[in-house]
Design a binder for these strands. Structure first.
Length: 279
DNA sequence: CTGAGCACCTGAGGGC
DNA sequence: TGCCCTCAGGTGCTCA
């Protein structure tokens, strides 16, 4: 499920459940995610001091000068109600609730890192700017990360001959733009996903920057309502997908001009676009 | 440095 | 019913 909007809404849902709470037990499945999950039983009695985010990494600051870094991969969720134990790889229990990392495909990640070394950890050190300035970026032990600007997008694409769509998904350039929102942002900006990145004009860089930011902001607003279903048992999966203009809509009419939406593959990932609106 | 390809893993859905 | 194929929201590695 997770692109940046879902990681962000997950964080917002978990914050009131975990922040300031003492962990009563931390259990792991013993199965490896992208990397082996460390033993975490010794975190019982430790307090979660704050929740933060960098790119799609959730960062749980702990009272023992360590940070629990979590990533949801392709299929991960953090939920108070995991569907089954088979794919529940980590559970953080407090006096009042339990939050589980549920991840069938196991592309996720759980690492315990010394907080002072967080910003220099290889996973985080090379990341590009954040698309949005959000409260979740603050409270990190280091300075808040830079925020995407059109100037950065323009400058950083000058040396890239690869198509703009896979380039947008490169976290060295900008973090948090996944496969769905790369297609959606390019549609909104009217830019062909196959345009070589270095051919992006300054004007297009400005437009694209704005549309990335608006698309993600809209998705966070909508994702809040769909993701709540994962942490609260009451709801069904939200109508999250109804906001997509092109993603998953192959052969359906473009919402602007009615032309059938085209599907292609770039860097082994599905791309959706309007052949008329994105010249 | 860039860019292309592959790898990790499980489950859902379509065609036969 | 079952088998086989393709596809899925991410990221990091290798090799040219």
């Amino acid at each position: 499920m997770p692109e940046l909007p879902e990681v962000e809404t997950t964080l917002r849902a978990l914050k009131p459940l975990l922040e300031g709470q003492t962990l009563t037990a931390v259990t792991t499945s013993g199965k490896a995610l992208r990397q082996p999950v460390p033993q975490l039983g010794h975190l019982a009695g430790i307090r979660v001091t704050h929740l933060a985010r960098r790119a799609k990494y959730l960062l749980l600051g702990l009272s023992n000068q360590h940070t629990l870094l979590l990533h949801l991969g392709m299929s991960g969720r953090l939920t108070t109600h995991p569907p089954d134990a088979k794919h529940t790889h980590l559970t953080l229990a407090t006096a009042t609730t339990g939050v589980s990392l549920y991840d069938p495909r196991r592309f996720g990640l759980a690492l315990l890192l010394p907080t002072p070394q967080l910003s220099t950890h290889p996973l985080l050190a090379g990341l590009g700017p954040e698309p949005l300035d959000l409260p979740s970026l603050h409270g990190l032990p280091s300075q808040p990360p830079p925020i995407l600007t059109a100037s950065h997008l323009y400058a950083a694409t000058r040396s890239r001959t690869t198509a703009i769509k896979p380039t947008l998904m490169d976290a060295k350039l900008v973090v948090g733009v996944g496969n769905i929102y790369a297609s959606e942002s390019l549609f909104r900006a009217g830019i062909n996903p196959t345009l070589p990145a270095h051919k992006l004009t300054r004007k297009q860089a400005e437009s694209l920057t704005g549309h990335i930011q608006h698309t993600l902001t809209d998705a966070i607003t909508a994702g809040g309502s769909s993701l709540r279903d994962y942490t609260h048992p009451s709801g069904q999966l939200g109508n999250f997908q109804s906001m997509f203009n092109v993603y998953g809509r192959k052969d359906q009419p473009c919402p602007h001009c009615g032309t059938p939406i085209a599907h292609s593959v770039q860097a082994q990932r599905s791309t959706f676009s309007c052949p008329t609106c994105q010249k």
